[in-house]
Amino acid sequence: MNQKELIEYIKNNFKGIENIKSIDEKQFSITVQKERIINILSFLKLSNFKELALITAVDWIKEEKIEVVYILFSYEYEQQLIVKTYIDRQEPSIESIKNLWEIATMYERDVHEFFGIDFIGNDDKRPLILHNWKDIPPLRKDFDSLKYSNTIFGKFKKDKE
């Protein structure tokens, strides 16, 4: 199946897709409702998008939304598929997909650390990369990195010696 046929196939077989569009020859994206994310991912996994390449998130501070992005890959169709969903920014939470892909546990830990998104069902919330972090998650748009750096590491001053 080429990309056009794939898009048709997904449209015909899955209800509740908000938006589906082609990005380029090898990529296309789907936007779905937050509640239907597990349904669409298990449907896609059954239709040969077997690899979960990445889970990440984008902070849209003006719209008061956080966009959660799942990137899937199919070796059979040689297509990359980007599944997006929008969640509330104040209390960000979404169902965990760790039962679909085991590796999702790690990605969800990572996204939880950097965006503060709560993955329901994934209890592993140990920090993965940051050292002894006490502030708001660093990749939120309202986090002031420069001020943070100046406060903790100090501005550059010339030595007296």
Binding site: N132, K134, I136, D144, T151, I152, K155
Partner: peptide, 11 residues
């Protein structure tokens, strides 16, 4: 450190 950094003053 035990407290959030950004509540404090700049060095």
């Amino acid at each position: 450190r035990e407290f959030p950094v950004l509540s404090g003053e700049e060095k």
